[in-house]
């Protein structure tokens, strides 16, 4: 039996075929995916990227819960027309604290990687509750319950702890104060504002949801949306060092 006829073994035994398929696919994975975990230049070294605050993290969970990623990507590709429309292409570093990442692949709506600070909080409030009240041609569904639902901060500490296991550098102090930090970031004059500012020096605290005295899911989601893509200052970003 010549070597060229050995394929008959795979074709006649389904289990051997299955094992063969698994081996071939894992070689592909080992060669294409594994190196990204150890190669030094996978994630650029940039200044400014910080872990999410508890409020933003809660907003991110709402983003995932409501399935926003099904219609919105968060990945500006390195293509001329995308950079013209959305701004600087996304860096790997900008989603280094995303577990899981929200790059997405579907754009029924626009890319959101740099939507932060582009529109006012009030616009986001109206747009989330009733998209067509501000953008008449929009096909996005409304999410009016976000402004009604009180934000659940009970499990925020656990949430941060899980992120810690994933490798996000939260301190024990940040984990412990997650719930109070979320409330402090969602209001203008919270007693915990100073401590929050110390723990997250570059985060912005204000009443995102616009309802005095209440911290709703809209507060969290808008806080998250308003910081997307804003952490890297591209005026000081070293373009040449990260050409690859």
């Amino acid at each position: 039996m010549s070597l060229w006829n050995k394929h008959a073994i795979f074709e006649k035994n389904s289990i051997i075929l299955l094992i063969g398929v698994l081996i071939v696919i894992s070689i592909g994975g080992l060669v294409e995916i594994m190196p990204l975990f150890y190669m030094k230049n996978t994630i650029e070294k940039v200044e400014g990227v910080r872990p999410y605050t508890p409020l933003e993290l809660a907003g991110r969970d709402i983003y995932v819960r409501e399935g926003c990623y099904l219609c919105h990507s968060q990945m500006i590709r390195a293509l001329g027309d995308e950079v013209e429309r959305y701004g600087h292409y996304s860096l790997a570093a900008e989603s280094m604290y995303d577990h899981p990442f929200q790059w997405g692949s579907k754009r029924n709506g626009p890319d959101l990687a740099r939507v932060g600070a582009k529109y006012s909080d009030e616009w986001h409030r109206q747009h989330l509750a009733d998209p067509r009240s501000v953008v008449s041609a929009s096909i996005m569904p409304g999410y009016p319950w976000l402004a009604r639902n009180e934000l659940d901060v009970k499990h925020l500490s656990d949430n941060l702890r899980v992120q810690q296991i994933e490798g996000v550098p939260y301190t024990a102090e940040q984990v412990e104060n997650a719930a109070i930090d979320a409330r402090a970031q969602a209001s203008e004059d919270h007693p915990g504002a100073k401590a929050f500012g110390k723990r997250y020096p570059t985060a912005v605290a204000r009443n995102y949801g616009g309802q005095p005295g209440r911290v709703t899911e809209a507060d969290a989601l808008i806080a998250y949306l308003q910081m997307l893509g804003t952490s890297v200052d591209f005026k000081i970003y070293d373009e040449k060092a990260n050409i690859r």
């Binding site: 390195a78 293509l79 001329g80 013209e84 292409y89 373009e239 990260n242 050409i243 690859r244």
Partner: peptide, 14 residues
């Protein structure tokens, strides 16, 4: 060739 240099070149041309 690099994809990032590629987009920079495209934009420079534009």
């Amino acid at each position: 060739w690099s994809s990032r240099q590629g987009v920079n070149d495209d934009l420079a041309k534009l």
